Simulated scan of single mutants.
Amino acid sequence: MHSPAANADPAPRFLDGAGDWVFRNIVAIAGWFVLITLVLAAFSMYWGGREAFAEFGWGFLTSTDWDPVQEKYGAAVAIYGTVVTTAIAMLIAVPVSFGIALFLTEVAPAWIRQPLGAAIELLAGIPSIIYGMWGLFVLAPILGNHVYPWIDENLGQLPVIGTLFSGPPLGIGMLTAGIVLAIMVIPFISSVMREVFLTVPTRLKESAYALGSTTTEVVWDIVLPYTRSAVIGGIFLGMGRALGETMAVTFVLGNAHYISLSLLEPGNSIAASVANEFAEATTPMYQSALLALGFLLFVVTFIVLAIAKLMLMQLKKREGK
């Protein structure tokens, strides 16, 4: 006698195998599409900026010149402004985001957690140009009239750090740009932290509380060690967002092509330079210099995210994962 399996139609098996092959190749194409797009974007910016790199060489990275009339360009001012504003943003955003995430997961009453979490996530959907306009028309006057004069008078006279906080209270400048950037990245970082804090098994926290641990001890000894890798990943995600921000920074940074140690004075950034001047770039060298700035921003962002990935890999090795 023949078994039913022997008489089974081979067509369904063939169709299943063909469907699996099609699905596997479609998702592979999607993955390669992202990688190829990334490489092509980087190459196109490098190719567009090749004239500036060939003309100025390594001096393009260290020069503070930016003179379209004499065709002299340097990226030092823009790089400095990008790094400083991002650093200010992260110094403000990381502690605030950490506090928000802990409040929503460990401290806040149950009735307020969902509405407050949704409100914070909605901040991420506000267009960056709105943040820039708010920063220019609302935040900058407040800082320039009420906050920066006090900072200049009291902190600007201190030794060592006084240089950072002395200067004219214009309202716009590096510190204002950093504050606006911090407000923009807080929703991203706090949302990631909140989600990963919710993944901590309730039994672990309840066991710690049963042994007499306080909320602070549970956070530092249970929650953070369990979610360390994801928290660092969220922080670097926010940093990448801050590095590439354009319109909000353009409104409040001041767009001055010089380096000043004072955080109260105007500066410039890579993204702001490209946004402000690309429409005015009438010569091939001018356009090439702006595209070279774009390539440098890509490289800086790539290096930051690569460092984050390496850190996460090292953490996983230490944790034995």
Rank of each mutant, 00 (worst) to 15 (best):
P4W: 09
G19P: 01
D20H: 11
F23K: 14
I26S: 09
A30N: 09
G31F: 10
W32C: 12
F33Q: 11
F33R: 02
I36L: 15
T37Y: 10
T37N: 08
L38V: 13
V39F: 14
A41N: 11
M45C: 07
Y46I: 13
G49S: 09
E55P: 00
G57N: 12
G57S: 13
F60W: 10
L61H: 01
T62K: 06
T64C: 07
K72S: 14
Y73R: 09
G81E: 05
G81R: 03
T82L: 05
T82E: 01
T82G: 01
T82P: 00
V84R: 08
T86Q: 03
A87V: 15
A89F: 05
A89P: 07
M90A: 08
L91Q: 06
L91N: 06
I92M: 13
A93I: 04
V94T: 14
P95Q: 09
P95A: 06
V96M: 12
V96R: 05
S97H: 12
L102C: 11
F103Q: 04
L104W: 03
T105E: 09
T105S: 11
R113I: 07
Q114S: 13
G117Q: 02
A118H: 05
A118I: 11
I120S: 04
L122N: 02
G125Q: 06
I126P: 06
Y131P: 06
Y131Q: 07
G132V: 07
W134P: 01
F137T: 12
A140K: 04
P141N: 13
I142D: 03
G144K: 11
G144R: 11
N145A: 15
H146F: 15
V147D: 10
V160N: 02
T163L: 10
T163F: 10
L164T: 01
F165D: 05
G167D: 03
M174E: 01
L175K: 02
L175Y: 03
A182C: 06
V185M: 01
I186T: 05
P187E: 01
P187Y: 03
P187S: 04
S190R: 04
M193G: 04
R194A: 03
R194V: 00
F197L: 15
L198N: 11
T199C: 00
V200W: 04
V200A: 05
R203Y: 00
L204S: 11
K205G: 05
E206N: 12
A208H: 03
Y209L: 11
T215L: 06
P225K: 02
S229V: 10
S229D: 09
A230H: 08
I232T: 12
I235K: 01
G238N: 04
G240W: 05
G240L: 08
G240P: 02
R241H: 10
R241P: 10
A242D: 02
M247H: 00
A248H: 00
V252G: 01
V252D: 02
G254E: 06
A256Y: 08
I259H: 04
L261I: 00
S262I: 08
L264S: 06
N268D: 12
S269T: 15
I270H: 03
E277D: 14
T282K: 14
T283R: 12
T283S: 15
P284K: 10
M285S: 03
L291T: 04
L291Q: 14
A292E: 12
G294A: 05
L297W: 01
V299T: 12
V299C: 08
A306D: 06
A306S: 15
A308F: 03
L310H: 06
M311N: 08
L312S: 12
M313W: 10
L315G: 14
L315V: 00
K317S: 06
E319N: 12
G320N: 08
